[in-house]
Design a protein around this nucleic acid. Structure first.
Lengths: 207, 207, 207, 207
DNA sequence: TATGAATGAGCGTTCATTCAT
DNA sequence: CATGAATGAACGCTCATTCAT
């Protein structure tokens, strides 16, 4: 029991150290970007020794990857398949809710959003593939939703794969603009952004 | 005359060397990205000595910047203001033509497109600013076009700045998907992409 | 306590490494000069890795500057203002003592003397200024001593600034000859040098 | 004859090119020092092509050495042995004249003086040896003069080698101060410098 | 577990010199 | 003789990672 307690306490300490390092890394990576962030930056901000870092993470790449995975998970849990069973809320409402939640999530995780949209491309092949997978899954869901919509007659005939990418791109750009780029004037509220994006997606720009 | 001839030939040789280096750099940067490309990679691929590189370009950054500037210029010449004077072609036709030309240009410059969409963010502040300026100018043109459209009654009431970004994002994503990401299946033709993006932009997804 | 012990030991090790590097650098710089000494020379002679050097010194320039500063400090502590208050030893005795100490100090620090007299000019503006400041301070002290001597009537009327530089030059040349230049025959003893220089300074060459 | 004329003209052109390069090099070396002067600096200032430089001089080192040799020759012709045959001018007058001429020569060749006193030490072993030889010859002449003076009874008993170095050092320092170091206030005239140095050398500082 | 000194491959850049034209 | 493009060894420095304590 005593030993178990010790082990458990050690385990807990270990986890909290890890968490602390991750948090620090999230902040610093978000501020300076992957390449401009050195191990030095991380350990100094975290107040641990050089070697300690490598006790918890295999490499600089590894801790960054873990941050990315966390963000993927967070976002993935935000986006669900559209429910088209009878009795479910109308698809449009569901989509609206999803988009709202995406914006809200990124708003709550601006640092991670910065990382995702600023840095996660071009670092190396593995990162790129990971990122492509992530967006690919979202894309797939949108594509499916569009296909369903077409079948149900609520969506006009269109190339679901291309349009799906358009929607994804619109959302990414809005998020980038809102949370990543340093903006001079006041940014529109999350709600406004969501409303406009959805309206655009649904009806386009035509009068 | 003789001397003129010599000078002219030397000048030509010099330019062709420069061009060759730029071409090699375009390929390598496009494949490996800015950070992962070393001067060694460039000179080995170009078959020149270390010092020769610096005869033509001030630094690694400089040659990359030149590639970027070239792409900016190429794209900028592709995008014009919409002409709304009476007698001009209908705005929609103009927009269609512009989008078509953008896709065609990027299609012809896939390597540069890769660089632009994969690398140009997060390298350093100057690059970031340059990129932001570039997109900012395009964004501004779209915004103005939307405002004009609203005034003319052909565009529904909307927030021009947000929707402008949506359109930009949609186009960027399509381009990225089409020319940057290694695609398994056959990519849709440029014409198809243009048609779908425009239709989406104009009318959204609603039936 | 245990931790304190560890920290203290580490501190000591750190200092001794630094000292070892400085010592090696002193030797190599003294032998080959600043420009001809490469970081490679230093780390090879010290038996440390490239990075280790930069753990202790910011740059090649920095370690050289530190050596120079050390010599300045050593010499500065050797030279004092002449005490002319009643009861103090006669000025001539004081001057004799100072000159003796300068020679002795440089004799004990031949490597540093080599550096000071061989290298410290023309390296860069900062070094040059530093050196000029150092000699300027000594020059100032001699000038003042001469002025005082003239006032007291023990020094003949003369241009204190020019003669001060003459004295400085004489001493520098003797030191250079004695400790810097590789000499074939046996060098005169420090005491002899001091005696002759002082006699020359005081009475010149005239019979 | 015609051919001879051509050859002679070519010869003359060759020499003037060389001379022009030397003159330029003198100026630039004097301003920037040996290490900070690049071949680029020289050929740009001289308005010749890179390869042309190597047509006239073997290396950067070679042209610098030639400048140095020129200065040595100029100065050597300034300093003569003291004539002690009966009927010759009194030795003191001769010494005075020599010192005056040294100062005047250096005054007329400030650029070379800068080079000689700022740069010629520590460049490499050969330069150092050359410089040592040059000063050695002057030193030898002063030593001999002192020995003669002692024999004649006009110079007090002293160690001729040490005192000779003192005199040399005094002169070098005065020259350095006057022509090399950037001086704020007005420099004393050459005549004043010469007078003070000689007086100091002859009688020291004692009243 | 925690430390931080040590490592060394790798980088971008410079510049004296060569050589084909 | 003149050119200037080409060369490549050498340099100072960085930083992710290792390891003895």
């Amino acid at each position: 029991m005593v030993i178990d307690g010790r082990v458990a306490r050690a385990q807990r300490q270990r986890e909290s150290r890890r968490a602390a390092l991750l948090q620090v890394a999230r902040r610093i990576f978000s501020q300076k970007g992957y390449h401009s962030t050195s191990i030095d930056d991380l350990i100094e901000a975290a107040g641990v020794a050089r070697g300690t870092f490598y006790l918890y993470f295999e490499s600089k790449r590894a801790i960054f990857e873990e941050l990315l995975d966390g963000l993927f998970a967070t976002l993935a849990s935000t986006v669900h398949r559209i429910d088209v069973t009878p009795g479910a809320p109308p698809p449009i409402e569901q989509v609206t809710a999803i988009v709202d939640r995406i914006f809200a999530t990124l708003d709550e995780n601006r640092e991670l959003a910065r990382i995702l949209l600023r840095e996660a491309v071009g670092l190396d092949e593995d990162f790129d593939r990971k990122l492509a997978d992530f967006y690919g899954r979202i894309d797939h869901m949108i594509t499916n939703a569009l296909r369903t919509g077409i079948t149900l007659g609520v969506v006009r005939p269109l190339d679901p794969e291309i349009v799906s990418r358009c929607i994804l791109g619109a959302v990414k750009e809005i998020v980038h603009q809102a949370y990543v780029a340093p903006q001079g004037s006041a940014a529109p509220s999350t709600a406004t952004l969501g409303r406009e994006v959805i309206a655009f997606t649904l009806t386009g720009v035509f009068a």
